[in-house]
Design a protein around this nucleic acid. Structure first.
Length: 120
DNA sequence: GTGTTGACCACAG
DNA sequence: GCTGTGGCCAACA
């Protein structure tokens, strides 16, 4: 099963992350809680770090109009820290900021307005 | 099996 | 507001 390429924990993280709509963001704690591990925020970051389907591989395009062609991509750039900070990114936080901005997320002083873009 | 590392979180000072 | 400390979970050497 190719699904078992990663642990169930990682798969849950990817799945929860994929639920984040374009223009919205979620925190590591939020993802962790969504998968049933409210204290696994570290594990979430760890899973996303090894995420093989990161958006960073793609260019700054808007998949809003794309049809089912979207395979199991994980918008890890939509996952930020609880304080709104970008945090880290496998391809560099710089790219993460660019991706978020490209989706309409306003970043002020390197932080995202969670009260405005946080997705539950 | 133990210790270390990691894209973290919450709390205290 | 920043820094330091303790804690949780998972993967790796």
């Amino acid at each position: 099963m190719e699904n078992r390429e990663q642990s169930q924990f990682c798969l849950r993280v990817y799945r929860a992350t994929r639920k984040i709509p374009r223009g919205k963001v979620a925190t590591y704690a939020q993802i962790a809680r969504a998968i049933g591990h409210p204290r696994a925020c570290r594990g979430v970051g760890n899973a996303l770090n090894k995420n093989p389907n990161s958006y960073s591989s793609l260019s700054l395009r808007s998949p809003a109009g794309r049809r089912g062609a979207t395979k199991t991509l994980t918008p890890c750039h939509r996952v930020v820290r609880s304080n709104g900070s970008i945090g880290g990114f496998a391809s560099g936080a710089k790219k993460k900021r660019a991706l978020l901005v490209g989706e309409g997320v306003v970043i002020y002083k390197g932080k995202v307005d969670l009260k405005r873009y946080l997705y539950s």
